[in-house]
Design a protein around this nucleic acid. Structure first.
Lengths: 335, 335
DNA sequence: GTGAAAGCGCTAACAG
DNA sequence: CTGTTAGCGCTTTCAC
């Protein structure tokens, strides 16, 4: 009864005097087992210290009970927290979580997705997506459901905030404070689609107030350039950044120039990362509802996974962002 | 040749007119295949868009080509970055990374490790470990190698910084600045062993200078209590915290009381998290070498995994931390 | 060099 | 309610 190694379902079957299938039924909980045998099997199981082998189970089911999470940069707390939430929810649904860090590199994204496909994951959550069509195609060909979380994607199930509404909220806040010369700060760190949408919202809101939108790339936001931007009669008095990281960087750069925030210039972010909450940073920001992002995302994914064959068109969920006012914004200085 | 579904090794074999085994040999790169057949097989592979099924491969090998990473809290940037580095290194070695977030909860740790065992991972890296002996025992019984990274653990392979040296470095720095009344800030967030070791180093260093060590729990470090602690003739002039998060919290609490850092009181951390590097925080800290932690950790793990049967005793690697002086420490005020 | 055969540990019809 | 029979897709001796 005791082979040198890890006990299998057969050992359990022998010890309890039933067949493999019966043991399997007990394990899976398929109702067709009498109480008597069930408990005999259960006894055998822990007498042996038997542990089911998911590898074998997954092979026959042709699908690993795991979901792949593709993330651009785990060192970015915003994403790290999303991954954490995802892992917790996935575990509740008995799925393990395989993480893949792409560093925003397309080749790596391709390679990682390929690995996930080889591992036959049940679904993939992309917390950052290059937008590359071939990646989507591969996934679809392999019939592995995907959900894109936190950035907008028409071609797949997706849950993200309403980017336009987010920048609009920032503008309204700044405008309400009295600012009129406001610039949008953006950069390559934001996915293309997201960047466009956020800028669109900014522009719209500004136009709504009869103001002209100005755009600054974070790479150009260095010392002297910044100084030129914010001083003088037509100088910018407030920035609405496309994300928190850039906003914080901007604050750094401004203060290195001796320009105080918010006394001289106001800065608003977008994301709601922890860093911004610290009292010394106190970043006013438009926060993304992280839990919702994850909950709805996993919901879409699980739904798609349960569907035998989900040829349904992509579903999109747009979540509302929320303004968090902290200390980095204030009324403009009297001219 | 084209069944409705995902092609298997048999399809490749048929198309290229060889047997499964030969295809397998090509895939694995076992040398015994002629150039001619090899290329025929390769052609068939991409004609079919064949992708090997790791589930089947792992089943026969009885080991998933994956490593499990158990982490307490992914939302803590220090750990998130370790996980990120681990994922990258693991991927380089063709291992996928399964993450498990325990929230520091023993039951969850047990459950997650159990899952990893069912999935038959090749190895487990614990970035935070309850210290529970039964977890270690299970892992050992299943012959799954473990490495504990970033916190000290005698009973298993382990790589961590020399905790005593770390707090000692903080004390030396503070002492050099002229501080004499220094307290160690600790709390429940740090694992027991680590907490003890860090305090021991602190005490030793203080004793070396003929000074008495004082200990403050972060939970007691609230407004009024803090004020009492740092004012008056015998008031504390500097804190050496057991980790960065607590140090930052302390700064918050101090400044909320109107006590300025570093003008009135100096604060040094331990970890080297990103947050501390931000100019508005500028935390002086004793940094852990994260890359080394991960590299050496994975090295130990892979070594153990390759060993047919590694009954070798645990190996321990102690890494040297490094002082990073920033703006949260300064000479004490003239009395 | 290449192929045939024998599983890895489990699930899933289908009989009994 | 339980057992029998087939595999899932791949690796791996061992002959040829």
């Amino acid at each position: 009864v005791s082979p040198g190694h890890r006990p299998t379902i057969v050992d359990v079957a022998n010890l309890s005097g039933v067949s493999k299938s019966t043991v399997s039924n007990v394990l899976i909980g398929a109702g067709r087992v009498s109480e008597a045998t069930r408990s005999r099997v259960l006894e055998a199981i822990d007498a042996l210290g038997y542990r089911p082998n998911s590898l074998a189970r997954d092979l026959v089911r042709r699908r690993a009970h795991a979901i792949g999470v593709v993330v651009g940069d785990l060192a970015n707390t915003f994403y790290a927290e999303l991954v954490k939430l995802l892992e917790v929810r996935a575990a509740e649904a008995a799925y393990t979580t395989i993480v893949c860090n792409t560093d925003g590199d397309l080749e790596r994204e391709r390679a990682r997705v390929e690995t996930l496909l080889e591992r036959a994951v049940s679904g993939v959550a992309m917390l950052q997506f290059s937008g590359d069509a071939s990646v989507l195609r591969e996934l679809e060909a392999a019939r592995v459901p995907v959900v894109v979380v936190s950035c907008w994607e028409e071609r797949a199930d997706c849950v993200a905030i309403d980017d336009e509404a987010a920048t609009r909220a920032a503008v309204e806040h700044l405008h309400g404070l009295g600012h009129r010369r406001i610039a949008h700060l953006t950069g390559a760190l934001v996915e293309d689609g997201t960047r466009a949408a956020r800028y669109a919202g900014f522009e719209l809101a500004m136009a709504g107030h009869g103001l002209t939108a100005r755009l600054v790339d974070v790479r150009d936001a260095t010392g002297p350039a910044l100084r030129a931007l914010v001083t003088g009669a037509g100088g910018i008095t407030a920035f609405a950044a496309a994300n928190d990281l850039m906003a914080v960087q901007l604050i750094d750069a401004l203060e290195a120039e001796g320009i105080r925030v918010p006394d001289d210039v106001s800065v608003a972010g977008l994301d709601g990362i922890e860093l911004g909450a610290h009292s010394r940073i106190a970043l006013t920001t438009v926060a993304q509802p992280r839990e919702l992002l994850v909950d709805r995302g996993l919901e879409l994914l699980l739904a798609r996974m349960d569907d035998g064959d989900g040829e349904r068109p992509p579903r999109h969920v747009a979540l509302a962002p929320s303004l968090v006012v902290r200390g980095s914004t204030a009324a403009p200085r009297a001219p």
